[in-house]
Computed example of a mutant assay.
Amino acid sequence: MKVSKSFEAFASEAPEYHSIWMKNVQKLDAVSKLDKKTKELAYLAVLAAIRLESGIPFHTKMAKVYGATREEIISAILVGLPAVGNCVVSALPIALSAYDV
């Protein structure tokens, strides 16, 4: 699966930092009590809420791999609507485009 250009640059231009980062991500993943689909859906909600849209296609595809439906993707993106407002809707077409590929 393809990652964002910014994450590609992180990996290629700062490989030591990237390696440390990825080891910590794996450690955090190992202790999570969420199943992989739920974790990816929650991550999509966070990405939408903080407007970090570059990671949305990758994590949408991961959620789909773990069994998330298109409707669950939509719900995950929009779950932050009451808390952060309609800024999350800009993530919707990005996620759905990635899902529909």
Rank of each mutant, 00 (worst) to 15 (best):
Met1Val: 07
Val3Asn: 04
Val3Ile: 15
Ser4Thr: 04
Ser6His: 12
Phe7His: 07
Glu8Gln: 14
Ala9Trp: 03
Phe10Leu: 14
Pro15Trp: 02
Glu16Met: 09
Glu16Ser: 12
Glu16Gly: 03
Tyr17Asn: 11
Tyr17Glu: 07
His18Arg: 13
Ser19Phe: 08
Ile20Glu: 12
Ile20Gly: 08
Trp21Tyr: 15
Asn24Ile: 06
Asn24Glu: 06
Val25Tyr: 01
Gln26Arg: 12
Lys27Val: 10
Leu28Asp: 05
Leu28Cys: 11
Asp29Ile: 00
Asp29Ala: 10
Ala30Cys: 02
Lys33Thr: 13
Leu34Val: 02
Leu34Ser: 04
Leu34Thr: 01
Asp35Pro: 07
Asp35Arg: 03
Lys36Cys: 01
Lys36Asp: 03
Lys37Asn: 00
Thr38Pro: 01
Thr38Gly: 01
Glu40Cys: 14
Glu40Lys: 11
Leu41Pro: 11
Tyr43Asp: 12
Tyr43Asn: 14
Val46Ala: 10
Val46Ser: 02
Ala48Pro: 07
Ala48Trp: 06
Ile50Glu: 11
Ser54Cys: 06
Gly55Lys: 07
Pro57Lys: 11
Phe58Ala: 09
His59Tyr: 01
Thr60Ile: 09
Lys61Val: 13
Met62His: 08
Ala63Ser: 02
Tyr66Cys: 11
Gly67Glu: 06
Ala68Lys: 12
Thr69Leu: 10
Glu72Phe: 03
Ile73Asp: 03
Ile74Thr: 15
Ser75Asp: 15
Ala76Ser: 12
Ile77Ala: 11
Ile77Lys: 12
Val79Cys: 08
Val79Asp: 03
Leu81Met: 14
Leu81Arg: 09
Pro82Asn: 10
Pro82Leu: 12
Ala83Glu: 05
Gly85Trp: 00
Gly85Ser: 02
Asn86Glu: 07
Cys87Glu: 10
Cys87Tyr: 10
Val88Arg: 06
Val88Phe: 04
Val88Ser: 04
Val89Leu: 13
Val89Cys: 10
Val89Lys: 08
Ser90Trp: 05
Ala91Met: 06
Ala91Pro: 08
Pro93Ile: 00
Ala95His: 04
Leu96Pro: 00
Ala98Cys: 09
Tyr99Ile: 01
Val101Glu: 15
